[in-house]
Amino acid sequence: MDNAVKYTPAGSTITVAARQQDGFAALSVTDNGPGIPPQLQSHVFDMFYTGEHTVADSRRSLGLGLALCKTIVDAHGGTITLTDNIPHGCVFTFTVPLGEVTLHE
């Protein structure tokens, strides 16, 4: 969500969706912004990778957000992916296994 808000131009649409899929919860963030060039997409989950964009206040991010997301999702047995939102924009989707949580109070 944070990246979609930071890197998608004002007036764009950002959609958050969730669905159940084969025993997993699948959550996606879709935007209709400029997208990420194909040659950069394979690096977006790399630690300290910041791409070609700067944040609106001219400070660059540290390149930790998506790497941290991937680490957390992987630790829970899920996946995280980036796909193109045709004709332009991005779709980030992550899955985590569904299951009951036992609270020990």
Rank of each mutant, 00 (worst) to 15 (best):
T102W: 05
G77N: 09
A10M: 06
M47Y: 08
T15E: 14
K6G: 01
Q20C: 01
Q41D: 07
H53E: 10
A4V: 06
S28H: 05
V29P: 11
D2A: 14
S42F: 03
K6Q: 15
T102V: 12
Q41N: 06
P9G: 01
D84Q: 12
P37N: 11
L27E: 11
T15K: 13
G99H: 10
C69H: 05
F24D: 14
L40Q: 11
V73H: 02
F94V: 02
L64M: 09
G99E: 11
L66D: 00
I86R: 07
H104R: 12
M47G: 01
V101A: 14
I86S: 13
I14R: 00
S28D: 05
V96G: 03
A17T: 15
A75E: 13
P9N: 05
E100D: 08
L98E: 13
I72W: 03
F92K: 07
A10H: 09
V55R: 12
F24E: 13
Q41H: 02
Y7S: 09
V16H: 04
A75T: 09
S28E: 10
P38R: 09
A67E: 02
P87Q: 05
A67V: 01
T71Q: 15
L66S: 01
L98T: 13
P38C: 06
G89F: 02
F45P: 03
F24A: 05
P37M: 11
E52N: 06
T30N: 02
I80P: 06
